[in-house]
Design a binder for these strands. Structure first.
Lengths: 338, 338
DNA sequence: GCTGGCACTCACCCGGGAGGAGTGCCAAAG
DNA sequence: CTTTGGCACTCCTCCCGGGTGAGTGCCAGC
């Protein structure tokens, strides 16, 4: 039932609606696009598209707007990811290159994405589970107080304060530090637990309690921090769709404040390639009128975390997808360099 | 000209307006408050208050609303900071106590403040300039690559990657680490520069370049990170004043995205005691219709950073001030304990 | 299968009138 | 001099009804 021209009509409807934010009618369509047919024909096609659930009318005598299903078809079949212009690409590169540390990379990425897409940007910190351990450092702060610092190959640093069950000498500390690092440095995070299990046995009885405490804190950090952090930005862009305010924006802001929701959102996306979730495809209710475009990024070929944008279902998909993909690539490069 | 009763009238106007969000008239005032006079008298008082610029009418035949000047008088003279109930205090304490590290403390504080005040919360990370150095750690990642980790007494950790001009041996590294720490550990950040100036001289010629590089990176970190970070939350609360949407909320969201703006905002506040900036008292244009309530917090008696909330000028000042003060105290306690 | 014509349906945009809250002023009372 | 009730006036808000126009669905003809 959906011949070539009808798909073309759907594409035209999506494009116009995204541009004007108003329901688009048959006459306007034939004027703005070279469809080669009359409004009456387009009306028939529209009726068919509506029958199939790709478009809908807000009320009887209004134009049509795409449904979630319509956007889905558009994204899957009709839209080509729009590559960025080379000045844009250069700007991205320059902007990201100035970053001084991981926090800064993430912060800059968020700003960049938000500006490029004019939407809300979400960037996940590189994940610990997929990262490897670069170094574990132990610092004695007081006789029975140790600070554990964990450094990953993505430049992330986590620290924990540890109260020891018994005083712990500098020599023992140095010993533990050396042994720990020789075992876990360069290892993937998930591989660490079995490698350190027998460490307490190598120590004097009086130190074993402390060693165990340190180890369990290390493993805890591993697990806890698998709940990954993220950063968002560009929320002011939400105000651009002032129409249905504030009914739309309220639940979105609320959802964005819940890291858990966002993490789940990014987690649902495919590990490789770009994922677009449209409207009701998003599990979270508050995001039912938004679309999420996300993609994995990483320093090597492998994705270590995800980033993306959240915007109204009525968004410029080709442009947004292009920007998201480009930013992910450049962030990957920057991470690989540092 | 402003006798006791007129102040009482102003107080009543502020309270009612904050509650109803609608201009308040003379009749309604006498009904809701025991002023002991008739509406006509109140009208006279209102005329006087308007004359002095404390209240205004949106249009001729409407009730009055407080001006910025009116709120100012209210806050300075008429409002008592409202202490929290003890269940609330207990809830704060329990909620903050579960934090595992500094990031977590800040994150929880933001959530807490946002929930308590139902407004946008801003929490500054404990400042490096006022903090002292707990430890400096140097890690060799490659023959000519060193990672510098700086740990402060507030639990904050900063790291920097350093490319050395020449390979740097483990012994030299350990030497530098020891010397550095013996000089700067426990020192205030601002005091560090002169203390390390002559360090390169203690090393072999071949290592001096690297030592200088490390030192300058350390001092850089000191300066750079004096531009402090902060965390915000509760932006969804902005949607509660759906009236003048989105004209009001847009610039506010934009301002809140600019860390620089926020830092300046908090920086302008007094170092000790609570600061309330009302409407146009805020330098930033986007915040002209909001008030900022902020206060310093710290682990000892001394403030190391600030926190506060941003809300509409029409806010519950006593309640907000009470919540902000209480949260600041508890955060201070938590920081002191860790 | 495409096209032009045509009647029909609503949302949107005024303009005007009723209603009402609130004010300012004034004259009288305390 | 302050307070109070009365009163006329202002002007915002709400609601109603008709006109307008974009857009549709259907149909008959090509």
């Amino acid at each position: 039932m959906l011949n070539e021209r009808r798909l073309e009509v759907l594409r035209a409807i999506v494009q116009d609606y995204v541009g004007t934010e108003e329901p688009v009618g048959s006459k306007a369509l034939t004027e703005r696009h070279k469809l080669g047919v009359s409004p009456a024909t387009v009306r028939n096609d529209m009726a068919a598209l509506e029958e199939e659930g790709y478009i809908a009318q807000p009320h009887t005598s209004a134009g049509r707007i795409p449904t979630d299903k319509g956007y889905r078809l558009f994204v899957d079949k009709l839209a080509a990811v729009k590559p960025l212009s080379s000045p844009e690409r250069r700007a991205i590169h320059n902007f990201l290159e100035g970053a001084v540390d991981l926090d800064d990379v993430v912060a800059r990425t968020v700003r960049l994405l938000a500006q490029l897409t004019r939407q809300v940007a979400v960037v996940q910190y590189p994940s610990l589970t997929r990262s490897t351990v670069r170094h574990v450092e132990l610092l004695s702060l007081a006789p029975a107080r140790v600070m554990l610092v964990l450094i990953t190959d993505t430049g992330r640093v986590e620290q924990r304060m540890i109260d020891c069950p018994a005083p712990f000498g500098e020599t023992s500390l140095a010993d533990l530090r050396a042994r720990l690092n020789s075992r876990v440095a360069g290892r993937r995070f998930a591989d660490v637990p079995p490698l350190v299990q027998d460490l307490p046995e190598a120590f004097e009885a009086e130190d074993r309690g402390t060693v165990s405490t340190v180890l369990s804190t290390l493993l805890e950090t591993l697990v806890e921090e698998t709940e990954e952090r993220l950063m968002i930005g560009g929320t002011a862009n939400l105000t651009r769709f002032a129409h249905d305010f504030p009914l739309t924006i309220r639940p979105v802001l609320e959802a964005l404040e819940e890291q858990v929701v966002l993490l789940k959102l990014l987690g649902e996306a495919k590990d490789s390639g770009m994922t677009v979730r449209i409207g009701h495809e998003n599990a979270h209710e508050g995001l039912n009128s938004t679309s999420v475009v996300s993609v994995g990024y990483g320093s090597g070929g492998e994705a270590v975390a995800k980033l993306g944008v959240v915007g109204p279902t009525r968004m410029d998909y080709p442009g947004t997808m292009g920007a998201v993909r480009a930013v992910a690539r450049y962030v990957g490069q920057i991470l690989a360099e540092s």
